[in-house]
Design a binder for these strands. Sequence first.
DNA 1: TATTGTTATACTCTATAACTATA
DNA 2: TATAGTTATAGAGTATAACAATA
Lengths: 164, 164
Amino acid sequence: MSGRPDTDMEVRAHADHHASLRLWLRLLSATTRIEDTIRQRLREQFGITLPRFDLMAQLEREPKGLSMGELSRRMMVTGGNVTSIVDQLEKEQLVQRQPQPGDRRAYAVHLTPAGREAFSSMAIAHESWIVELLSPLATQQQEQLFQLLATLKTGKASSVKPVQ
Amino acid sequence: MSGRPDTDMEVRAHADHHASLRLWLRLLSATTRIEDTIRQRLREQFGITLPRFDLMAQLEREPKGLSMGELSRRMMVTGGNVTSIVDQLEKEQLVQRQPQPGDRRAYAVHLTPAGREAFSSMAIAHESWIVELLSPLATQQQEQLFQLLATLKTGKASSVKPVQ
DNA sequence: TATTGTTATACTCTATAACTATA
DNA sequence: TATAGTTATAGAGTATAACAATA
């Protein structure tokens, strides 16, 4: 902001900033491309949307079922949306609301046998699509990527070091 | 599918498949977390949505403007959506439709001076958010990630090698 | 006839807020 | 009073298809 001339560090910092932006755009487009493909195939081949698939995936890991509130937290969407997705899945008899002994306000949502079976075939297809779409990367590269992303996963960003 | 026992290769392939799935889930959640943060900050601090920001970003790179069709291709959405986004931005006088000499069906959309100024401050903030959100990765790690993602960018997946 | 862009429609996902029933 | 879940509403983004104007 002052009138003093650029130092090497400042030039370098600007270059790093642009590099971060380019990295982000590449990260976003690669991820979006894969996600869109998955979304489209789930719709075409199984007539299901990604949020519905994700909700079923949550339930599949929890045979005892999950409360609406827990589903809302795990899927990071507000309660009303969970109600609507569960309504749809229940209409197709893929999930079921089950009374919760001890609290008559709440209940456990779980997969029906038909839901479990349907999810199983979808999950197999889903995994094979992922394998296919990530196949440009060799196993070792995938491991590298996995490690790098671990740092980004939590969102506990170290603060940006100011340029000296 | 046959009844023959697992070989080491098959066990290894299954492990790789699960590793790919875990990698995908991590890639998706890291990207989504950053994207949601950006989306939220753009809305809170500038009252703009991501698609609108993206459309302005496309125009900023093309001082001569872009046709609706070209915007549609670049943003990978169908024409009707571009019409609606441009309508909104034009109502706020951030972009303008300009008659195209030589083809009276088409016109060039470009940023207005106000749009250019507004985009400029948004872009500066946007870039600093990206730098912040990617800061858990050191510069060198960001370069590594950038290289790895190059392989995924195009979507030209080599086919999955069948298990021998 | 083909292309550019608009309009109309419908659907999904999303958030917010008011609401009911139970704790 | 607080919590679990529902309902109602509104808004954004998306696709599809029919349409008008121009090439």
